[in-house]
Design a protein around this nucleic acid. Sequence first.
DNA 1: AATTTACGTCAGGCATGTTGACATATCTTG
DNA 2: CAAGATATGTCAACATGCCTGACGTAAATT
Lengths: 184, 184
Amino acid sequence: MPDVNFSNPASNPDSRAAEARAAAARDGDLRWDIIELLFFAYRDFVGDADHELEAFGFGRAHHRVLHFVYRYPGLKVADLLDVLRITKQSLGRVLKQLLDEGYIVQKTGNNDRRQRLLFATAKGEALVGRLAGLQTTRINRALADLAPDDAETVRRFLRAMIDRDDPDKVLETIFKTGPATKKD
Amino acid sequence: MPDVNFSNPASNPDSRAAEARAAAARDGDLRWDIIELLFFAYRDFVGDADHELEAFGFGRAHHRVLHFVYRYPGLKVADLLDVLRITKQSLGRVLKQLLDEGYIVQKTGNNDRRQRLLFATAKGEALVGRLAGLQTTRINRALADLAPDDAETVRRFLRAMIDRDDPDKVLETIFKTGPATKKD
DNA sequence: AATTTACGTCAGGCATGTTGACATATCTTG
DNA sequence: CAAGATATGTCAACATGCCTGACGTAAATT
């Protein structure tokens, strides 16, 4: 029989002094509910893919790389670094695995022979497609509870949550297509 | 002058064989747009807090612990493990730091003296409040672009994205409050 | 010819997660 | 009360994914 009280934040033994502080003044204005919902929703959303990836000996990092390479064929290594916001060294390891195991191929750039343009192979497409399928199922299930045009509201909310100060190339293409884009 | 083509997924040199596969059949039905928007939105959303946490020598793990302890005062260690879905050992390290540095206090349970109920101190509340403030600013900015009741649509979407098979205690309380809950 | 750019790689380190085993205090139950 | 279950803490060892800094090489630009 658990006796957790789950009472209101203000009623805890050590916060009497803090009640006069930000709590009373600002706490009620904070979006605690959405903050928590985002945490749980994203946890379960990526959990779909994480679970499947285990069977391949891959992690979340592999998924991200494969996803963006599939979605934006001919992506350069430098572009990928911009999008994922990780270092060359971190990317190097997972990219090497994906190349070695045949999920991605490199192709020397036509104009600039220094570049290694990245493409997903059929094997890579199959994997990323299966992962997107799992996540799509979850999204469709969630949208099914809502009105038809609420999907567009969700899209607009998510777009507005994204920083637009220094958009990388992928983000530019995402935002270039008007806010009313249905699917891709 | 970059020469990335950013063409359609299907037009890549190694995927001819795959076109007949899932691509043509299912690719168009996948929610690529929302999948990517969720990635970028969550990246920037947690980025707000990550940046601030650096100044304290803390990471995302500390934030999560402090958040749930503040929000659900008297949370037991076991409850925290359920919510965060990590092991006792992982939690132990960050929790110890938060205790040592005075962001959280323990209190022996009244009914069950084995339990260590967790509470945020004033110092802990100040930090978690500042972090929630940053994230709230982003959420409010995003919602400002939408119609007033669209906030409820977003909440309902996020709720529906969450697994409800084995809800832990925190999730139970979140779902117990009706879907129309405004703020906490 | 000199510099810059795109990419790769080596060495070492930190944070966060894991499994498995074990210890201690406390509650519950036969 | 004795025996077992529960809540928590801790030790050792390890994996992953991230980091900084330095260096090398090929190809483009100036």
